[in-house]
């Protein structure tokens, strides 16, 4: 069918114009030197995006976070510098947001024993990270290739929010939102790893600092998150 459309389109164009250019190619000489800037150049910069969830390593019955329902996203900028064909270092600047959803159980005590329709703690942060990248295909073209990143990060929390959704005695939905939580730290830091193939990567962050302060230190949030990332360049 598309061939018929092509012929009709061609016929239309031929009526509209005396001559129709099927192809017009200017031949540009190929660069004969390795580009300084590029996926496998001396340096390269690109934007990165990702969605992630948490992986609970330890169960906390008093503050049971639901892995599947706790989701986050990030976007930012990454710059890398090639040291040699298989080693690079770089940094990234990112905005990162995540919401931790709590399962409503009888054992839950954080921050109260009430069972809500929904309950979550969320934070949004801007942060910076440093990483070392190992490429597994050192003999590659101008291509990010297969890589493993390992590094560390530090985040400053722009927002710290606690939200609940309840039904009152009149069966009306009531939303409750508390911001600038004073039991949450303003900063966090941790380690970071990512494995990637060119524009796609799987990343993991392990938070080494605590987020919750007294009186909720025992309700500390899960430390490990994993996500799927996309680099755009």
């Amino acid at each position: 069918m598309k061939n018929i459309f092509f012929i009709i389109f061609l016929a239309f164009l031929m009526q509209a114009h005396a001559q129709y250019e099927i192809i017009h190619e200017d031949v540009n000489p190929v660069d004969t030197v390795r580009p300084d800037f590029g996926p496998n150049g001396k340096k390269f910069a690109y934007s990165s995006y990702g969605i992630h969830t948490i992986i609970p390593i330890e169960t906390n019955a008093q503050a049971p976070v639901m892995p599947g329902a706790s989701l986050g996203y990030k976007f930012g900028f990454t710059q890398k510098h090639r040291i040699c064909s298989f080693l690079s270092f770089g940094y990234n600047l990112e905005f990162n947001s995540i919401s931790y959803r709590y399962k409503q159980t009888d054992d839950k005590t954080f921050p109260d024993t009430l069972n809500h329709l929904k309950q979550s703690v969320s934070n949004s942060a801007i942060g910076a990270g440093l990483f070392l990248r190992i490429n597994f295909d050192p003999k590659r073209g101008n291509y990010l290739g297969y890589f493993l990143d390992m590094g560390g990060y530090g985040d400053w929390h722009l927002s710290r929010t606690y939200k609940t959704k309840d039904e009152d005695a009149l069966e009306q939905i009531v939303y409750n939102r508390v911001t600038k939580l004073n039991f949450m730290e303003k900063y966090q830091y941790g380690v970071y790893a990512s494995i990637g193939l060119n524009k796609i990567n799987i990343y993991a962050r392990y938070r080494m600092s605590d987020i919750f302060k007294a009186p909720y230190k025992s309700a500390e949030l899960p430390r490990l998150s994993v996500g799927l990332g996309l680099s755009i360049f």
């Binding site: 114009h17 001559q19 129709y20 250019e21 190619e25 031949v27």
Partner: peptide, 16 residues
């Protein structure tokens, strides 16, 4: 070595 090349439909002279 080519500098440019084109392919055209020939409907009317001059074609190029």
């Amino acid at each position: 070595k080519l500098i440019w090349y084109v392919v055209l439909t020939a409907n009317e002279n001059p074609v190029f």
